Amino acid sequence: MTANLDVQTAIKNLTKPERVSYILEKLTSLYPEPPIPLDHKDPYTLLVAVLLSAQCTDERVNKVTPGLWKLADNPFDMAKQSVEDIQAIIRPCGLSPQKSKAIAKLSQILVEKYDGEVPEDMDLLEELPGVGHKTAGVVMSQAFGVPAFPVDTHIHRLAQRWGLTNGKSVAQTEKDLKRVFPKESWNKLHLQIIYYGREFCSARGCDGRVCEICTTCYPNRKHPKKTLKA
């Protein structure tokens, strides 16, 4: 009993760098080689899949994309498809009117401006229709291996629960996470946090007082951690 109390006291007094070190070690032990959750075969299909994942689960996207790839799995063929045909396939992903127009238009741009290749540049990716900062970051990190730290609302929430940011926006949280974690860990860590959140620290499964990382970082937390909205 005394030993457990000593451990909790030590954990309670962890500095922020020590907390960062613990989280990194814990996530690496749980998910040493986290797979990319969206099925794809190249940068283009990853780009489209990530676009479809906005306000949609990866599981649903993976059910929809095989039908979309049968219609067209490259920008040259996709650019020839009607928005209506694309929308008919991707409707289960939600926001299908906007997403189908974006897929059609970005495919045309890739053909006309980039010879059908997805640009390996963050700024150029963000210029494409339907491609925001997070989507561009996912493509840069997972398709091209360029260090990036894409932050969605879930990662934003966990980072606050773990005392890594006080940011009120995903943009600020991204800056804070990049500041405390080594650059070489960003691409893998982005996925590790996603998997941990789904398995142990979901919106309903943990309020900052349930999962192992939350209870280790804050063993004496008495009230749910209120998350500042992204």
Rank of each mutant, 00 (worst) to 15 (best):
P119Q: 10
G67L: 06
G163D: 02
V83K: 05
P119R: 08
L47Q: 08
L110K: 03
D73E: 14
Q98V: 15
I109W: 01
A54S: 14
L38S: 14
W186A: 00
A230Q: 06
H223F: 09
G94H: 10
T57A: 07
A148I: 01
R91V: 07
L191F: 04
P97S: 15
Q81I: 02
K175S: 14
C217V: 15
G132L: 04
F144D: 11
M140T: 03
I23N: 01
K80M: 06
W186M: 00
I36F: 07
Q108H: 13
P219T: 13
P37F: 05
P43E: 11
K229N: 08
T215C: 09
K175F: 03
K113Q: 13
G208M: 12
V210T: 15
I89G: 03
Y218N: 13
G167A: 15
S53N: 04
E25C: 12
Q172F: 00
K222S: 10
A159H: 05
G94Y: 08
L164T: 01
L38M: 11
K183M: 05
K226W: 01
E117W: 02
W162C: 06
G205K: 08
R209E: 02
F76S: 09
K12D: 14
L51D: 03
Q8K: 14
V20P: 03
R198I: 10
R91G: 01
K101Q: 15
E33N: 15
A102L: 04
H223N: 13
Q81V: 08
V151T: 13
E84R: 05
E120W: 00
V111S: 06
V61H: 02
K63I: 10
V146D: 03
A49C: 07
A49V: 07
K175T: 15
A171C: 00
W186I: 00
L30Q: 04
Y31I: 12
Q8E: 11
A49T: 09
E184Q: 11
I213M: 14
A104G: 02
K188S: 15
Q98C: 08
C56I: 06
K16Q: 15
H223W: 05
K183G: 01
N74L: 02
L71P: 01
F76I: 09
D123M: 09
P66E: 10
L164Y: 00
P119F: 04
P17E: 06
N220P: 00
K222E: 14
P75C: 09
E33Q: 13
V7S: 10
A104D: 07
L27G: 10
D85L: 02
E59Q: 13
H190K: 07
Q160W: 07
P129E: 08
S96Y: 15
N4I: 14
T57N: 03
N220K: 13
R60K: 15
E33P: 02
Q172D: 07
G137L: 07
G205E: 09
L38Y: 12
T215K: 14
E127C: 11
D6P: 01
A230Y: 02
V7M: 10
S100F: 01
I23A: 04
K99D: 01
H156L: 12
S53L: 01
V180F: 00
Y218M: 05
Y44P: 02
K12A: 15
K178P: 03
H154F: 08
V139H: 09
C201I: 10
W69N: 12
R91N: 07
R221H: 09
L106H: 05
D115W: 03
A3P: 00
K188A: 13
F149N: 12
R157V: 07
R91Y: 09
K168L: 05
K105N: 14
P17T: 07
H133P: 01
C56S: 05
I89W: 01
T135Y: 02
